[in-house]
Design a protein around this nucleic acid. Structure first.
Lengths: 217, 217
DNA sequence: TAAATAATTTAGACTTATCTAAATTATGAA
DNA sequence: TTCATAATTTAGATAAGTCTAAATTATTTA
């Protein structure tokens, strides 16, 4: 088995790999709130275990076995988040830190039973896809509101920013996962967006919010 | 907050305190599978934090704040065990190791919601009482079968031995928590006991089993 | 009650994961 | 293409928790 620190590094590298091909030492350090020198040490260790591909000064990528571990941690994180929201009635902005601890509970049998208990949910409370017990999942093609044009419509299906502040704002505006929205107007001056929720309420959101709110068309 | 190692020491000291007044270094070492020298180091640290009363060569006891932490960990352990058995359908002999990890999840809010979700259970799957959110619980007066005499009857309410082997044996004999039993005969030669379950099946158990099976009269 | 034995503690070392400061390698601008 | 700067790595240190071996204190037994 792997230590807690190792698991967190693998998860971080996995998330950072979404954007670029190779992940840099500094990116990892920033995402884990550590120093670059600590990252270098850990990268050597993970490379020794054949969980990452690493050559000095060239950044890293996950090997298949490293990715498998990372996806499994993400599966556990998202299933626990779903549990906390759906069974224990936490709000979507409250669950991240708890799931961050729970994702390291090791038993595979436990997580598979939890999955079954909740009837195999496909998405966590923030719209992220939940990998199945074989690590498979499909990430739907989502677009930020800022990439849409007037009269486009779709379903709110995810967020880029997972901070409490952002999620609470969305709650207040009733911009929650699953809601159908349509673009009413785009203000050229500041790229803010006016949209209609479920053919009723109209809300006006800033460019920044539009950038962080993801829609399935 | 306290580290995982600290929490495990406090829990161990708590459990060992049930029998005697002061707990010895060697007892702790045995229960945690470490060396006495490691225990001494940790005892100094816990004493510095005012979680235990410790004087060299004299053994230790928990302070009120140490006991509070220990009871809270035990509360979490037993609630998670209940969850695993009642919600995820694990057997009572399968849950200990998983709960051993889960008891260290820190959020108090989480554990209180879990308690509520399961409707405030009073006992874990092995019959141990579950402390409430204020750390209060009552341990019922239980007697081992070996302390009963012919014609005594009562309810199976706990076990002393929590090993898989013992619990699986009890399952097979249908000697599970909640069952009503009556003592039919005590064999003087080897102190084995014949008892009747729910006025039906008769089983013959060894002295050792009788010693580890607890009854509420 | 003194010697033998058992229990406990101390001393010094190791591992993991981290850090700071210095050295090295890459990169981008002139 | 070279130099300044940014990114990364190395060297050496620290803290937590553990270990072995040696020293110390308690306890038991004769």
């Amino acid at each position: 088995m792997n230590t807690l620190a190792e698991e967190n590094y693998l998860k971080s590298i996995y998330h950072l790999s979404m954007g670029a091909d190779n992940v840099s030492t500094n990116q990892i350090a920033a995402s884990l709130n550590t120093k670059a020198s600590s990252v270098t040490d850990m990268l050597k260790k993970l490379a020794d275990k054949a969980l990452i591909n690493y050559t000095r000064y060239q950044g890293v990528s996950l090997t298949p076995s490293g990715e498998k571990i990372a996806v499994n941690i993400i599966r556990k994180h998202r299933l626990w988040e779903y549990f906390l929201v759906e069974k224990l009635n936490f709000k979507w902005d409250e669950v991240h830190d708890m799931a961050e601890e729970m994702e390291h509970i090791s038993s595979a049998e436990l997580i598979d039973r939890l999955d079954e208990f909740m009837d195999y949910p496909q998405h966590d409370p923030h719209g992220e896809p939940i990998p199945d017990c074989n690590g498979r999942f499909k990430s739907p093609e989502l677009k930020p509101v800022s990439a849409l044009t007037v009269n486009d419509q779709g379903i709110i299906s995810g967020v880029r920013d997972h901070t409490s502040a952002f999620l609470q704002y969305l709650d207040k505006q009733q911009l929650t996962i699953g809601k159908k929205i349509a673009i009413t107007e785009i203000i050229e001056f500041d790229h803010s967006v006016v949209l209609q929720i479920e053919n009723k309420k109209e809300v006006h959101i800033s460019r920044e919010v539009a950038n962080n709110l993801l829609i399935a068309l």
